[in-house]
């Protein structure tokens, strides 16, 4: 192998610390949300960057070319995460954006990402995904993309080495620490645990926005069947979305510590005692007020 192709699938997710939830319409106002790189996918990119470094150091200088391609599917603004990935050290980016791709569930997302990979990097060696994105949290796209590409896969990878056409992996799966090996090409998913992402250098970020190899592909460019409309083709349908926290009573207490604690117990001693399995009722002492 004189050339190695690494691919990282990156999703842009809403920066949800300020979740723009509209309780009236009961929808998430996505257009209000600022985007960020999905944390798990960022760890996946970091894993790719680290493995490239290790391999480059191992190889006789200049003999191996290791290329990292980042791919995202989403609205046009998702391009930001590709630029950020380039600033972190990826070589090129592919933006998949098309109204026909909107509303894809994991099954269709994996088909689209798969079609793109077959188109732009048919000779790929290893695909990296995050173990689960922070918005939908399904963790399904990675394993399903492996099916689409018909390659072996391992999720929750914490350590990996590439050697002579195969990859060796360590992962923790349901209390089992497993050492696995699979032939390339293959796919791994990376949890946001072990590959802590480097900081993006500001200068690099600026550079990647000015130059940087990013190309945009439409549905037709990746040979998606012309009658495939993601929203229609997706087998799952969301029928209702609600916010469990929005339905909480959210009782507000304020004032001096002693006072609020007394009030807390007056109103919730059963709940607190019930959870603790202790009787917190005051028997012979006088209940304040």
């Amino acid at each position: 192998m004189d050339k190695i192709e690494l691919i990282v699938c990156i999703k842009q997710v809403p920066l949800v610390s300020e979740l723009p939830w509209d309780p009236k319409t009961k929808t998430l106002r996505r257009e209000m949300a600022e985007g960020m790189m999905d944390p798990a996918a960022k760890h996946a990119l970091e894993a790719a960057l680290q493995i490239r470094k290790v391999m480059e150091e191992k190889a006789v200088a200049g003999k191996k070319k290791i290329r990292i391609t980042v791919i995202t599917m989403g609205p046009p603004m998702s391009e930001e995460v590709l630029r950020e990935a380039l600033a972190m050290g990826a070589d090129s980016g592919v933006l998949l954006t098309d109204p026909r791709m909107a509303g894809a569930d994991t099954l269709i997302t994996s088909k689209i990402l798969g079609a793109a990979i077959k188109k732009v990097r048919p000779d790929f060696d290893l695909v990296f995904c995050g173990s689960a994105a922070s918005d939908s949290e399904t963790g399904q796209v990675g394993p399903q993309l492996a099916e689409e590409l018909d390659v072996p896969a391992a999720a929750y990878v914490e350590r990996l080495d590439i050697e002579n056409g195969h990859i060796r992996i360590q992962r923790l799966c349901d209390n089992f620490l497993e050492t696995l090996e699979m032939d390339l090409p293959a796919l791994v998913t990376i949890p946001p645990r072990t590959f802590f992402p480097r900081h993006v250098p500001l200068g690099g970020l600026q550079q990647s926005f000015e130059g940087g190899d990013v190309r945009t592909l439409l549905a037709a460019d990746i040979a998606l069947s012309p009658d495939l409309y993601a929203a229609k083709a997706s087998p799952t349908k969301i029928v209702n979305v609600f916010s469990p926290t929005a339905e909480k009573e959210n009782i507000r207490l304020r004032g001096a510590a002693k006072k609020v604690v007394e009030e807390l117990f007056r109103r919730f001693e059963d709940r607190i005692g019930g959870a603790a399995g202790k009787d917190l009722k005051i028997s012979d002492l006088k209940i304040p007020e």
Binding site: L19, W21, L28, D135, E137, T236, K237, V239, V241, S243
Partner: peptide, 10 residues
């Protein structure tokens, strides 16, 4: 979804 901040019926 969103760290349990939203629930979706699917």
């Amino acid at each position: 979804g969103f760290g349990g901040n939203l629930l979706a019926e699917i």
